[in-house]
């Protein structure tokens, strides 16, 4: 059974038909990427899964761990083991790095285990450890992305949704963040990754979907997608 299964999902922003019957599945332990150009509906899809979009626009079904979560409220979905890193990070600017991470553990009660996992995340992102006591708003873009990922991971998710982790970052920092993403998978987290930077996304993921104006137009292993002439032309720059 797939960890996440989406069947014929439609989303409407008023009259705008943003998702037109998307079906996809993410298996346990996979990294699956969703690539596509601006306005293809990538972010809409993630926000619909995680319950951040108003439920009245949803048609279709989302199954998480076998249970339907279609239209559930965002704060309830978090408790089921699904965490999302929003596009543009959305960290708490007036809380320190450590407090930001602690906010991510809002639904957990096991303090000792939270402290241990916080240390593990600091090993994964040593830069955050250095800036433990700084305010979130003073971090650089890359550090904020790391913090957003750490904050999502501390809730112990079965599935991590990542929206544009490379946005506005320097190539070297992107490299560092994707190395961390691979490491998270090795530790057993399943990841659904939405990216504009198709090259780095396909080199990290196992499988990929190509989304175009609200529809899935292609589905294959990342290797095959990276070789595909059309994908190359449209998303990988020839």
């Amino acid at each position: 059974m797939a960890l996440l299964e989406i069947k014929d999902l439609h989303y409407f922003y008023g009259n705008v038909h943003a998702l037109k019957g998307v079906s996809l599945h993410v298996e346990q332990g996979e990294i699956v990427t969703l690539i596509g150009s601006n306005g293809a509906g990538k972010t809409t899809l993630l926000r619909t899964i995680s319950g951040l979009n108003p439920a009245k626009g949803i048609r279709g079904e989302v199954l998480f761990d076998g249970k339907p979560i279609t239209g559930a409220k965002g704060h309830n979905i978090t408790g089921m083991g699904l965490a999302q890193v929003l596009e543009g990070r959305h960290i708490f600017p007036k809380l320190t790095v450590l407090e930001n991470i602690q906010m991510g553990a809002y639904l957990r009660k096991d303090k000792a285990e939270i402290a241990r996992q916080t240390e593990e995340l600091f090993e994964l992102f040593p830069r955050l450890k250095e800036r433990e006591r700084s305010l979130g708003g003073t971090l650089s873009g890359g550090e904020q992305e790391m913090l957003a990922i750490a904050r999502a991971m501390i809730s112990n998710p079965k599935l991590l949704l990542l929206d544009e982790p490379s946005m506005g970052l320097a190539p070297l920092v992107i490299h560092e963040i994707f190395a961390a993403i691979r490491k998270l998978r090795e530790n057993g987290t399943t990841i659904l990754l939405v990216e504009q930077n198709s090259k780095v996304a396909l080199s990290t993921a196992d499988r990929g979907y190509v989304l175009q104006t609200g529809e899935i137009v292609m589905e294959d292993t990342s290797e095959n997608l990276a070789k595909d002439p059309e994908v190359k032309k449209a998303y990988l720059g020839g």
Partner: peptide
């Protein structure tokens, strides 16, 4: 305070 600073992220924290 989390709601004050960023209600969307707060929602995401549960």
């Amino acid at each position: 305070m989390a709601v004050r600073d960023n209600s969307r992220s707060a929602d995401g924290m549960g």
